[in-house]
Design a protein around this nucleic acid. Structure first.
Length: 749
DNA sequence: ACGGCCGAGCTTTTT
DNA sequence: GCTCGGCCGT
């Protein structure tokens, strides 16, 4: 009789059948770890009589959670809906929604995203008179985030600061920031973990409740956990069984070679020292890769072998050799984007693949722009993941701020965001006055608004505030009615505020985009209401706060995807292009020039390993001899990672379109400073007339049209530091020197 | 109060 | 190159 476990290889099987006690699965890329996790869950339920209710599976992204949920549902016969499959953050939110009142917050807390954090930090800095030139908000925020990742409280931070002036200032800011979060009844992302740990440390009852509930815990991507997350898991897994004994039924899956989130506080020691933290850990290595061709996997192995600090392992595969890894050195970033998109289009049109078989990966989001241009030109369907989160768009944030205001009047940042959106004639002076009054009387900003008439100095503007308050109250009371359909709330807000009207009157492309986005938000609300047992406004806001772009990756429609290497973790594609393989781009300038370059470069190399191992069938790497970055041209050497792949695994291609060579310095160097480096600003400016370098669609001798000067003749084109300087003779206005990107000249025939 | 303009800073990665 | 915040002028 065959069963589902027969399809597993011996190591996978060992992991699945492991009984009790801590289990560390070191799973190489593509070794079927999700399969092992889901089968293990099924095994526990079916053969060990574990109640599904007692199982918790934690992932990092909603997408991973959703996938695991689906697969668990497929193989677990009965009761799979009682298994908790969720991300760290949503797990914590669920716990906190139930128990956070025990540590002094209200259960209707808001979740602040990066934008909200920045807004709050600005207020804090203003209040504490911090010189944000010397201490930028973002470094304050990142220090606080780091502290929270390490479970360092404001008090502890202050203690550690000692006499150091800067550190004390940071401590003061951290304290005030936290105080204001609390009075807004809000948590930031890091708080979600931090406060859950705090809850468990302070409330035995809550801890015991969850320890009893989660008898079996699985953690995916364990190498990316930070100290707070480790602590959380440790607490949860330290429950005792019916004999009063700790079992540590904790199963973690990870790959130290794929640890790429150190900057976010991920602590590699969590995986490297797991066996010390949990005695009697059983360790199982999954080393057979089922995803990639031999050539691709070998390339990955060769690259990662250059790292020193890693658990020794060797991935192998039974798959075919496959094609060699492609490498192309392009002339420029433009050529790179142009030729790669052309190649993709050709492959699809020759019926060799679909668009959703392709991914373009890059180190930084900024690199997506040029690809996007070319994809539009070529009419290739695509989706860019992560450049701007849907929920970070202005119009969406505005609507969400209304929803938050209705849901949690304590959320000061939300109220302040929309108090004058759309314009109500309530300006900064008024807001400051209300704010002062709120602080003085220890009430929320919204509460202060309701007493507008009592606030000194607001005689005139109070009449503008009260309609706002009654509008919010009106929406609130409507929401409370039993017959109210939650899906209507956004429309009601739009009606009550006239928010849409502003855009409709504008009638520009941008306004249309924004309206479409708002429609999309309404769709998401409708979907939420339909898919949820007991839909609520807070429930919707929570879901919205915790999704990232990658979660919305839709595999059903035929488009290719573009994303950063980080976002690509956990995904796989038949065809993968990794672009911008250049020193200074990848590995990044920051890592090369860090205080501890060795360590930082190793992290970059792991990122490279992650990228390479996304590819199943065909991997193409590329670099450009020069590219535009922040308006400057940079010359970069091909990445060291290219040199780490042995020549016999690679096919080095020549770009098909041969652009004429232009003034490439003999030794390509990486140039960071924009100020000191002007590649073409020599004593004698080089004349590029006739060269096809760059993207001007006119050259010397052409007639061009200028918006103000009319039609004229181009007499010279010069490359300045950042831009083309074009000289044009206008019959009516004389000779003008114009900056190409600014003047927007168009060729006329 | 508000719109428009200018300069600074940014870009490494994100739940 | 872009975006955001601050400043200025109405």
């Amino acid at each position: 009789m065959s069963n589902i476990y027969d399809t597993l290889n011996p190591e996978q099987k060992k992991a699945v059948l492991h009984d009790k006690g801590p289990l560390l699965i070191l799973a190489g890329a593509g070794s079927g770890k999700t399969r092992v996790l889901t089968h293990r869950i099924a095994y526990l339920i079916e053969h060990r009589n574990v109640n599904p209710w007692n199982i918790l599976a934690i992932t990092f992204t909603n997408k991973a959670a959703r996938e695991m949920r689906e697969r668990v549902d497929q193989i677990v016969g009965y009761g799979s809906e009682n298994i908790w499959v969720s991300t760290f953050h949503s797990t914590c939110v669920r716990i906190l929604r139930r128990f956070i009142d025990r540590i002094g917050y209200e259960r209707s807390f808001s979740i602040y995203d990066t934008d909200d954090q920045k807004a709050l930090m600005r207020e804090v800095c203003k209040y504490l008179q911090i010189d944000t030139k010397r201490m930028p908000e973002r470094s304050l925020l990142s220090a606080i985030s780091k502290a929270k990742d390490e479970l360092i409280s404001p008090e502890e931070f202050e203690k550690r600061a000692g006499g150091d002036y800067n550190e004390r200032k940071y401590a003061q800011v951290y304290k005030e920031y936290q105080k204001r979060l609390k009075s807004s009844n809000a948590l930031d992302f890091d708080d979600l973990i931090f406060k859950t740990v705090e809850l468990f440390m302070n409330d035995k009852e809550a801890l015991t409740y969850y320890q009893n509930r989660f008898r079996y815990i699985m953690v995916d991507e364990y190498q990316d956990t930070n100290t707070a997350q480790f602590r959380l898991i440790h607490l949860l897994a330290s429950g005792v069984n019916e004999f009063g004994k700790k079992e540590y039924n904790l199963c973690v899956v990870g790959d130290d070679d794929q640890s790429i989130y150190k900057f976010r506080g991920a602590n590699i020691h969590n995986i490297l020292n797991f066996e010390q933290a949990f005695p009697n850990t059983k360790v199982i290595k999954l080393e057979q890769n089922y995803r990639s061709s031999k050539n691709i996997l070998n390339a990955a192995n060769e690259v990662i072998a250059n790292n020193t600090k890693r658990k020794e392992k060797s991935l192998w595969t039974d798959n075919e050799d496959g094609d060699p890894v492609n490498y192309t050195l392009f002339e420029s970033d433009i050529e790179e984007a142009d030729i790669i998109t052309a190649e993709i289009k050709r492959t699809v049109e020759n019926n060799k693949a679909n668009y959703n078989d392709f991914a373009i990966l890059y180190r930084t989001n900024a690199q997506s722009r040029i690809f996007e241009e070319k994809l539009i030109q070529r009419n290739i369907p695509y989706k860019i993941i992560g450049s701007i989160n849907f929920y970070a768009r202005k119009e969406i944030k505005d609507i969400l701020a209304y929803l938050k205001t209705i849901d949690n009047g304590l959320d000061n940042i939300a109220v302040k965001r929309i108090i004058n959106v759309p314009r109500r004639g309530i300006g900064l002076t008024t807001i400051d006055r209300v704010n002062d009054y709120a602080l003085l009387n220890d009430i929320s900003f919204y509460e202060a608004l309701t007493r507008a008439y009592q606030i000194p100095g607001l005689e005139r503007t109070a009449s503008k505030i009260t309609p706002f308050v009654s509008m919010i109250e009106g929406l609130r009371s409507r929401l409370q009615q039993d017959s109210y359909n939650l899906t209507e709330i956004i429309d009601d807000i739009l009606d009550a505020t006239g928010y849409l009207k502003e855009f409709e009157d504008l009638d520009t492309e941008e306004a249309k985009d924004r309206i479409a986005n708002i429609d999309e938000l309404v769709n998401k609300l409708v979907t939420y209401v339909e898919d949820t047992d007991e839909p609520s406004l807070s429930g919707f806001l929570e879901e919205v706060a915790l999704v990232s772009d990658i979660d919305n990756l839709d595999e059903s429609s035929d488009h290719m995807v573009l994303m950063t290497l980080h976002s690509a973790k956990g995904l796989e594609f038949p065809y993968v292009y990794i672009c911008g393989m250049e020193e200074g781009i990848f590995p990044s300038y920051m890592s090369i020039h860090a205080d501890n370059p060795e360590e930082e470069i190793e992290e970059e190399r792991r990122l490279c390993y992650v990228g390479i191992t996304r590819a199943k069938k065909c991997l193409s790497l590329s670099s450009a001899k020069h590219r535009m970055l922040r308006g400057d041209i940079m010359y970069n050497k091909p990445s060291r990672f290219i040199h780490e792949i042995p020549r016999y695994l690679m096919k080095v291609n020549m770009p098909e379109a041969n652009m004429p060579e232009i003034n490439i310095p003999a030794t390509p160097r990486y140039h960071h400073s924009q100020k000191n480096y002007k590649p073409f600003a020599t004593a004698e400016p080089k004349n590029f007339a006739g060269s096809n370098m760059g993207s001007l669609d006119y050259e010397v001798g052409d007639s061009v049209k200028h918006i103000k000067f009319g039609i004229g003749t181009v007499t010279n084109i010069v490359m300045g530091g950042k831009d083309y300087e074009v000289t044009v003779d206008f019959p009516r206005f004389g000779t003008k020197k114009l900056i190409a990107s600014f003047a927007k000249l168009t060729r006329v025939d």
